[in-house]
Design a protein around this nucleic acid. Structure first.
Lengths: 340, 340
DNA sequence: TCTCAAAATGTATGCGAATACATTCAGGCA
DNA sequence: TGCCTGAATGTATTCGCATACATTTTGAGA
């Protein structure tokens, strides 16, 4: 009676492990072992099971597997924006690395908003991923406590902090801003400006740049904020704003190569000389930086190292290994090229 | 005895629906209803359940929910590359749209390889997503049959075909190539070239462009292939190759705006005039196309419409609605600007 | 030929939630 | 008062797989 009712009301027809088991003349448990621990199953049995899988086209149900084993073999990644090459390039590496370890990635965008991030993290946790990769180290208190109480391995990237949720891999944005200021001060320009997108880390670089530049005895740099996502158009508009303010013969530190690229284009369209009239410094050292004319001076962060360290750290934590240190500094380097 | 063994060997301590149920003085079933069908639970009970959830910080386990209901509320997305703005911008929209409908996205990269795609699709199906978004309409036979037998809603984008797996949303790349050829032939240049990345759809545009251009009475266009991902550097190198071949006063159709951008930069660095000496046509009409100098002529595909149609179609299919038509043509449009 | 450990497989149970079906209870109506 | 209906909740089962533990089989050594 229940039997009959159930076959009616539940969807059936799908091939499951039991189907395979029956075909191969074994029990479901043996099929499970054949799939997950083939070394403990006899070769003959393995063959029959594989044959059955072949003819049925059986695909294991990882949802059930995850529930039974409390291991989802998924990691979650939260980035501000996937259209921003800065993040997408890193994710690209990261996904590759964790995939080699058998993990799939669920990707979400927070759009630079901490509250949005919190909502996303809640939704992600309900999927019970084996680990989470977050961008940045600034999160809502609620978000932190969610993560903490979920007991998940968490890696925060692109930034450093003394108190990561779990592990962080990045570099000091303040140091980067200061170093760029010192570099800029060594050039022949008489003043400076910063063009920054509306991004918390960019703001910290900007603040450090401005402070250090002043401390070195120069006038306070001009500042221009770019609304929304960084873009070439945004860079062009920002330079126009600076010129309208009367800026001359200065060095311009942009919060991303894309903005710097826009600045370069605007100078060209106005017949201004770079590095003669203006110096331009980008950030991120994207692939195209060296291909611009003139080649763009930028700040390089080794993204492949960052991605690899992040993946390694996360995988290690998932494997239950507690790292010696909870903060990895991957550093950065100023790459002087033709625009300064 | 089993009781004791189980508490030892299975991980416990997690808050589950039963925890909440006990706290609220109801059964697990009522908690489930409170979460999924609050309208059938009495307000007083609802309050107690919500209070219990509040104090415990309970987060529902969607893995278990998915297993019980055969609904994962996840959609999978397969793209060739997430670092390519062409794809990432679209995905960005798509993710937004399906998220509003309560779906999370699992994203994987196929790297332009059909066999890789097949492996990924298998892995994805094991997660039992509620739907899949694929890029392009060319897949391995095995991949098609996997998808078909999984009975999943599938939307293929960026291309059209008479025989989609399920639904496709895109435009005709052959028509695009031909239209560009006609447009190019109307300009004052005496010959043409195509610079294309190693991408199946780009190749089809190229083939159609070349054929139509010749049919219009011109010489066969020169062709340059760019290895690997499209990039500014690749565009620069491609133009150098064309110049080395002796190309003069021609119109150059690039398979992406990024390549076209590289071509522009190379012309500038050599003092060549655009559109005087060379005409340049991109593809994709990215945001920055209009911000280049001169502004780039390109082919626009309405990505927001594409993303929306894809999301709508997938969600509709998930909801069990069979669409009238299985192929949506979103068209394209040539946007003439300063480079031609 | 017998013993015993290792190898191979079977048995039974739980993971956490959804849901069909059963039950209880209150109120409306004849 | 008795019956019926609908709202609210409880009961029992299932989803597909992993895995602890039990059992059987095999083969090596004595």
């Amino acid at each position: 009676m229940t039997r009959k009712g159930d076959t009616r009301t539940r969807k059936s027809g799908g091939v499951t492990m039991s189907t395979i088991a029956t075909m191969a003349g074994v029990t479901q448990a043996t099929v499970s072992r054949a799939l997950n621990h083939p070394e403990v199953v006899s070769p003959a049995t393995l063959d029959r099971i594989r044959a059955a899988i072949q003819v049925t086209g059986y695909v294991p149900n990882l949802v059930a597997g995850a529930l039974a084993s409390s291991k989802s073999r998924m990691v979650a990644v939260v980035v501000p924006s996937i259209t921003n090459i800065v993040y997408s390039a890193l994710i690209h590496h990261f996904i590759d690395l964790v995939r080699d370890a058998g993990y799939q990635t669920i990707l979400v965008e927070s759009g630079f908003s901490a509250s949005e991030e919190e909502a996303l993290v809640t939704a992600l946790i309900s999927r019970r991923p084996d680990g989470i990769l977050l961008t940045g180290v600034h999160h809502t208190a609620q978000c932190r406590s969610l993560l903490l109480s979920a007991g998940l391995p968490v890696v925060e990237i692109w930034d450093l902090t003394q108190s990561p949720i779990d592990i962080c891999v990045g570099f000091s944005h303040a140091d980067a801003g200061s170093d760029v200021a010192r570099f800029a001060s060594s050039l022949r320009y008489t003043n400076a400006a910063v063009i920054a997108a509306d991004d918390e880390r960019a703001r910290r670089r900007k603040a450090a740049f401005c402070k250090t530049y002043q401390d070195l005895g120069f006038d306070s740099p001009r500042e221009v904020c770019v609304d929304g996502a960084a873009s070439i158009g945004g860079g062009r508009r920002a330079l126009r704003a600076l010129l309208d303010q009367g800026m001359q013969n200065g060095v311009i530190f942009c919060s991303s190569d894309l903005l710097a690229h826009g600045v370069l284009i605007e100078t060209q369209s106005r017949g201004l000389s770079v590095p003669g009239d203006f110096g331009v410094i980008g950030f991120g050292d994207q692939d195209y930086a060296a291909d611009l004319v003139p080649p763009l001076t930028s700040v390089r962060v080794d993204r492949s190292v960052l991605g690899r360290k992040a993946a390694d750290a996360l995988l290690a934590r998932i494997a239950g290994i507690t790292p010696d240190t909870h903060a990895f500094d991957v550093g950065f380097r100023i790459i002087p090229r033709g625009t300064t």
